[in-house]
Protein backbone atom coordinates (compact mmCIF):
# COMPACT_ATOMS: atom_id res chain seq x y z
CA UNK A 1 0.00 0.00 0.00
CA UNK A 2 2.88 2.35 0.79
CA UNK A 3 3.92 2.17 -2.86
CA UNK A 4 0.60 1.46 -4.52
CA UNK A 5 -1.29 4.59 -3.44
CA UNK A 6 1.44 7.00 -4.62
CA UNK A 7 1.61 5.05 -7.90
CA UNK A 8 -2.14 5.32 -8.36
CA UNK A 9 -1.91 9.08 -7.74
CA UNK A 10 0.80 9.51 -10.40
CA UNK A 11 -1.04 7.40 -12.95
CA UNK A 12 -4.40 9.09 -12.34
CA UNK A 13 -2.97 12.62 -12.35
CA UNK A 14 -0.80 11.73 -15.34
CA UNK A 15 -3.72 10.61 -17.49
CA UNK A 16 -5.76 13.60 -16.38
CA UNK A 17 -2.91 15.78 -17.60
CA UNK A 18 -2.81 13.96 -20.94
CA UNK A 19 -6.53 14.69 -21.25
CA UNK A 20 -6.02 18.29 -20.15
CA UNK A 21 -3.44 18.78 -22.90
CA UNK A 22 -5.87 17.78 -25.61
CA UNK A 23 -9.27 18.78 -24.21
CA UNK A 24 -9.81 22.44 -23.33
CA UNK A 25 -13.06 21.70 -21.46
CA UNK A 26 -14.18 23.66 -18.38
CA UNK A 27 -13.70 20.63 -16.16
CA UNK A 28 -10.18 20.18 -17.50
CA UNK A 29 -9.36 23.82 -16.71
CA UNK A 30 -10.84 23.46 -13.22
CA UNK A 31 -8.71 20.36 -12.62
CA UNK A 32 -5.63 22.22 -13.71
CA UNK A 33 -6.38 25.24 -11.47
CA UNK A 34 -6.90 22.93 -8.51
CA UNK A 35 -3.60 21.18 -9.18
CA UNK A 36 -1.75 24.51 -9.45
CA UNK A 37 -3.14 25.88 -6.18
CA UNK A 38 -2.15 22.71 -4.35
CA UNK A 39 1.29 22.59 -5.97
CA UNK A 40 1.87 26.16 -4.86
CA UNK A 41 1.12 25.21 -1.24
CA UNK A 42 3.42 22.16 -1.40
CA UNK A 43 6.30 24.00 -3.09
CA UNK A 44 7.86 25.91 -0.16
CA UNK A 45 8.39 22.72 1.84
CA UNK A 46 10.83 21.19 -0.64
CA UNK A 47 13.56 23.43 0.79
CA UNK A 48 13.37 21.31 3.95
CA UNK A 49 15.04 18.46 2.06
CA UNK A 50 18.15 20.50 1.30
CA UNK A 51 18.47 21.86 4.82
CA UNK A 52 17.97 18.45 6.40
CA UNK A 53 20.44 16.68 4.18
CA UNK A 54 23.13 19.33 4.76
CA UNK A 55 22.51 19.41 8.50
CA UNK A 56 22.61 15.64 8.78
CA UNK A 57 25.86 15.23 6.82
CA UNK A 58 27.70 17.96 8.69
CA UNK A 59 26.03 17.28 12.05
CA UNK A 60 27.27 13.69 11.93
CA UNK A 61 30.81 14.86 11.09
CA UNK A 62 30.82 17.22 14.05
CA UNK A 63 29.37 14.75 16.54
CA UNK A 64 31.87 12.08 15.49
CA UNK A 65 34.70 14.59 15.52
CA UNK A 66 35.63 13.35 12.04
CA UNK A 67 38.80 14.78 10.43
CA UNK A 68 38.30 18.45 9.55
CA UNK A 69 35.03 18.60 11.47
CA UNK A 70 35.68 22.26 12.18
CA UNK A 71 34.85 23.08 8.58
CA UNK A 72 31.49 21.35 9.00
CA UNK A 73 30.83 23.55 12.01
CA UNK A 74 31.62 26.57 9.86
CA UNK A 75 29.19 25.37 7.18
CA UNK A 76 26.38 24.99 9.71
CA UNK A 77 27.19 28.33 11.29
CA UNK A 78 27.09 30.00 7.85
CA UNK A 79 23.78 28.27 7.11
CA UNK A 80 22.15 29.50 10.31
CA UNK A 81 23.69 32.95 10.19
CA UNK A 82 22.70 33.63 6.58
CA UNK A 83 19.18 32.31 7.10
CA UNK A 84 18.73 34.31 10.31
CA UNK A 85 20.07 37.50 8.76
CA UNK A 86 17.37 37.24 6.08
CA UNK A 87 14.63 36.85 8.68
CA UNK A 88 15.92 39.58 10.99
CA UNK A 89 16.92 42.32 8.57
CA UNK A 90 15.00 41.32 5.46
CA UNK A 91 16.22 40.32 2.02
CA UNK A 92 16.11 43.55 0.07
CA UNK A 93 19.00 45.58 -1.33
CA UNK A 94 21.26 47.06 1.33
CA UNK A 95 20.59 44.45 4.02
CA UNK A 96 23.29 42.21 5.59
CA UNK A 97 21.64 39.31 3.76
CA UNK A 98 22.31 40.95 0.40
CA UNK A 99 25.80 41.91 1.51
CA UNK A 100 26.50 38.23 2.20
CA UNK A 101 25.30 37.33 -1.25
CA UNK A 102 27.34 39.98 -3.05
CA UNK A 103 30.57 39.63 -1.12
CA UNK A 104 30.61 36.01 -0.04
CA UNK A 105 28.34 33.80 -2.11
CA UNK A 106 28.69 35.49 -5.48
CA UNK A 107 32.50 35.83 -5.63
CA UNK A 108 33.08 32.28 -4.41
CA UNK A 109 30.41 30.74 -6.62
CA UNK A 110 31.84 32.32 -9.71
CA UNK A 111 35.43 31.56 -8.77
CA UNK A 112 34.71 27.85 -8.20
CA UNK A 113 33.73 27.39 -11.83
CA UNK A 114 36.46 29.63 -13.18
CA UNK A 115 39.00 27.08 -11.93
CA UNK A 116 37.88 24.95 -14.86
CA UNK A 117 39.63 27.37 -17.23
CA UNK A 118 42.96 26.26 -15.80
CA UNK A 119 42.06 22.62 -16.00
CA UNK A 120 40.88 22.82 -19.60
CA UNK A 121 44.10 24.59 -20.59
CA UNK A 122 46.14 21.92 -18.91
CA UNK A 123 44.07 19.23 -20.62
CA UNK A 124 44.56 20.99 -23.99
CA UNK A 125 48.28 20.64 -23.50
CA UNK A 126 48.45 17.18 -22.02
CA UNK A 127 45.46 15.22 -23.29
CA UNK A 128 43.98 16.48 -26.56
CA UNK A 129 45.84 14.34 -29.03
CA UNK A 130 45.14 13.72 -32.70
CA UNK A 131 45.39 9.97 -32.16
CA UNK A 132 43.04 9.04 -35.00
CA UNK A 133 41.41 10.59 -38.04
CA UNK A 134 38.21 11.19 -36.05
CA UNK A 135 40.07 12.89 -33.21
CA UNK A 136 41.86 15.08 -35.76
CA UNK A 137 38.53 16.19 -37.24
CA UNK A 138 37.29 17.00 -33.75
CA UNK A 139 40.35 19.11 -32.98
CA UNK A 140 40.24 20.96 -36.30
CA UNK A 141 36.54 21.77 -35.86
CA UNK A 142 37.26 22.94 -32.32
CA UNK A 143 40.13 25.17 -33.43
CA UNK A 144 38.06 26.78 -36.20
CA UNK A 145 35.15 27.42 -33.83
CA UNK A 146 37.54 28.84 -31.21
CA UNK A 147 39.10 31.21 -33.71
CA UNK A 148 35.75 32.07 -35.25
CA UNK A 149 34.42 33.25 -31.91
CA UNK A 150 37.10 35.83 -31.21
CA UNK A 151 37.85 39.07 -33.06
CA UNK A 152 41.23 37.69 -34.15
CA UNK A 153 39.53 35.16 -36.43
CA UNK A 154 37.90 37.97 -38.38
CA UNK A 155 41.18 39.87 -38.47
CA UNK A 156 43.00 36.90 -40.03
CA UNK A 157 40.36 36.26 -42.67
CA UNK A 158 36.62 36.66 -42.98
CA UNK A 159 36.53 32.99 -43.92
CA UNK A 160 37.31 31.92 -40.39
CA UNK A 161 34.09 33.21 -38.75
CA UNK A 162 32.16 32.13 -41.85
CA UNK A 163 33.55 28.59 -41.74
CA UNK A 164 32.92 28.48 -38.00
CA UNK A 165 29.34 29.57 -38.60
CA UNK A 166 28.96 26.92 -41.34
CA UNK A 167 30.30 24.20 -39.02
CA UNK A 168 27.78 25.23 -36.38
CA UNK A 169 24.85 25.56 -38.77
CA UNK A 170 25.39 22.47 -40.91
CA UNK A 171 27.40 19.48 -39.61
CA UNK A 172 27.01 20.48 -35.96
CA UNK A 173 23.29 21.07 -36.46
CA UNK A 174 22.87 17.63 -38.07
CA UNK A 175 24.86 15.97 -35.29
CA UNK A 176 22.95 17.69 -32.51
CA UNK A 177 19.63 17.01 -34.22
CA UNK A 178 20.42 13.30 -34.55
CA UNK A 179 21.34 13.17 -30.88
CA UNK A 180 18.37 15.37 -29.84
CA UNK A 181 15.93 13.11 -31.67
CA UNK A 182 17.30 10.14 -29.78
CA UNK A 183 17.13 12.00 -26.49
CA UNK A 184 13.63 13.31 -27.27
CA UNK A 185 12.34 9.83 -27.98
CA UNK A 186 14.10 8.56 -24.86
CA UNK A 187 12.51 11.26 -22.72
CA UNK A 188 9.09 10.54 -24.13
CA UNK A 189 9.61 6.86 -23.43
CA UNK A 190 10.71 7.58 -19.85
CA UNK A 191 7.69 9.83 -19.28
CA UNK A 192 5.45 7.10 -20.63
CA UNK A 193 7.10 4.57 -18.33
CA UNK A 194 6.43 6.83 -15.34
CA UNK A 195 2.87 7.36 -16.51
CA UNK A 196 2.26 3.64 -16.82
CA UNK A 197 3.89 2.86 -13.49
CA UNK A 198 6.82 0.94 -15.01
CA UNK A 199 9.48 3.43 -13.91
CA UNK A 200 9.27 3.85 -10.13
CA UNK A 201 12.71 4.95 -8.95
CA UNK A 202 11.33 8.37 -7.96
CA UNK A 203 9.47 6.60 -5.14
CA UNK A 204 12.79 5.90 -3.43
CA UNK A 205 13.75 2.73 -1.59
CA UNK A 206 11.80 0.76 1.00
CA UNK A 207 8.46 -0.91 0.61
Amino acid sequence: MKRQIPLIIVITLGFMFVAHTFIPHKASVAFYDWWVSWSKAISPFAVILGIMSLTMVHGTKISRKAPNWQYSALTLFALVFTGASGFIWGTSEGTPFMWLFKNVQMPMGSTMFSLLAFHIASAAYKAFRARSAEATVLLIAAIIVMLGQVPLGMAISKWIPETSSWILNVPNLAAKRGIALGVGLGMTATSLKILLGIERTYLGGGD
Binding site: K2, R3, P6, L7, I9, V10, T12, L13, G14, F15, M16, F17, V18, H20, T21, F22, W35, W38, S39, I42, F45, A46, A180, L181, V183, G184, L185, M187, T188, S191, L192, I194, L195, Y202, L203, G204, G205, G206, D207
Partner: peptide, 28 residues
Protein backbone atom coordinates in the same frame (compact mmCIF):
# COMPACT_ATOMS: atom_id res chain seq x y z
CA UNK B 1 8.35 6.75 7.68
CA UNK B 2 10.13 7.73 4.45
CA UNK B 3 7.17 6.39 2.45
CA UNK B 4 5.16 9.38 3.64
CA UNK B 5 7.46 11.74 1.74
CA UNK B 6 6.34 10.10 -1.51
CA UNK B 7 3.06 12.03 -1.46
CA UNK B 8 4.38 15.54 -2.11
CA UNK B 9 6.72 14.08 -4.74
CA UNK B 10 4.07 12.15 -6.69
CA UNK B 11 1.68 15.07 -6.63
CA UNK B 12 4.17 17.09 -8.65
CA UNK B 13 5.08 14.11 -10.85
CA UNK B 14 1.59 14.02 -12.32
CA UNK B 15 2.44 16.73 -14.80
CA UNK B 16 4.59 14.19 -16.63
CA UNK B 17 1.33 13.34 -18.40
CA UNK B 18 1.53 16.67 -20.14
CA UNK B 19 5.19 16.10 -20.91
CA UNK B 20 4.54 13.09 -23.11
CA UNK B 21 2.59 14.80 -25.91
CA UNK B 22 4.37 18.13 -25.53
CA UNK B 23 7.94 16.83 -25.67
CA UNK B 24 7.00 14.45 -28.47
CA UNK B 25 5.78 17.47 -30.39
CA UNK B 26 8.68 19.86 -29.74
CA UNK B 27 11.66 17.57 -29.47
CA UNK B 28 10.71 14.98 -32.04
Amino acid sequence: LSWLSRYPIVFGMGIVGMGVPMSMHSSV
